[in-house]
Amino acid sequence: MRNTNTMDATSTGAIKSGMRRKMKARLSWIPVLAALAILILMLIAGQVHFGSFVTPAMLSSLLVDNAYLVVLAAGMTFVILTGGIDLSVGSVMAFTGMLSAKLLSVGVPVALVIPLMLIAGALFGTMIGVLIHFFDVQPFIASLAGMFLARGLCFVVSLEAIQVKDPFVLGLESARLGYGDWYITPTGIIALIVIAIAAWVLAYTRFGRTVYAIGGNEQSARLMGLAVARSKILVYVVSGVCAGIAGLIFTSYTAAGYSLNGIGTELDTIAAVVIGGTLLTGGSGYMVGSLIGVFVYGVIKTAITYLGADASWERISIGILLLAFVVVQRFIVARANRN
């Protein structure tokens, strides 16, 4: 035993680990690629089935109509990457929308209203994050409280829908920059900018890397001396701010603030993020995956409209897709553990 040639052992080990490494590196992208494959397959199937499904107008509307969801998914990705969950986003989106509609209707200038929306979202996020980190409340429950609170506060603002007439807010949706049949609205641009910034933060900042580290192993992250407490709270703040931005987009999209907006949106968001390949246990996932996840969701919605099928199929297909992806994730994790 003593005289084993250590050089030999390490070099073969290195070769083996090199091969394994390539497999592993691909492993974390597999779910994203799978989502992309499904998206493309659905587009092709749609094209074959309907004749003219994939058109510039349809692809443009995919982004524009789901801009709010893209923004929400960006925030949710941060939260899920740490291994948490945020159920409050739909309600917070509705609340910030209500708040803006109310403020605008009493004549508060839009330049003040928009920052206020973002601050309101951030406050909700802070509350949830503090409950989770300092009081050891499970993310599910803490964000549930946030969800209740925001939903109830919507009705405190107003029981009725409030129409929004502010030209700037409306312009975010109605203004169209186009090239041929392709078009994009300011809301679409906002969504893309949010995704781009979020992707950059995740990949190129210490906060972003800490988010991954926490999701990978919180205990290790703490022992490595990373700012775990701050980052854990910050992800919920980010998610809250994103809900604020989504509130703005949704208000401009519907031209009104309404208390029942965005019910169930948190589930759509979680589904989109998971379908996009982010591991629910945290630590693995990419922003671009969440964007693809939203598009998959959007295509399902469009296809169901095209089919004239019952709208209920939308939720069922999302449910099935979510299940399929979770099971796939489960096996990937199980395999990674075995290695």
């Binding site: 589930l267 709208a311 209920s312 939720r315 449910g319």
Partner: peptide
């Protein structure tokens, strides 16, 4: 259980 929560109402509607 989220899976059924999402899909269940759709099934009921069907």
């Amino acid at each position: 259980t989220l899976v059924l929560m999402l899909g269940g109402r759709g099934i009921a509607l069907l």
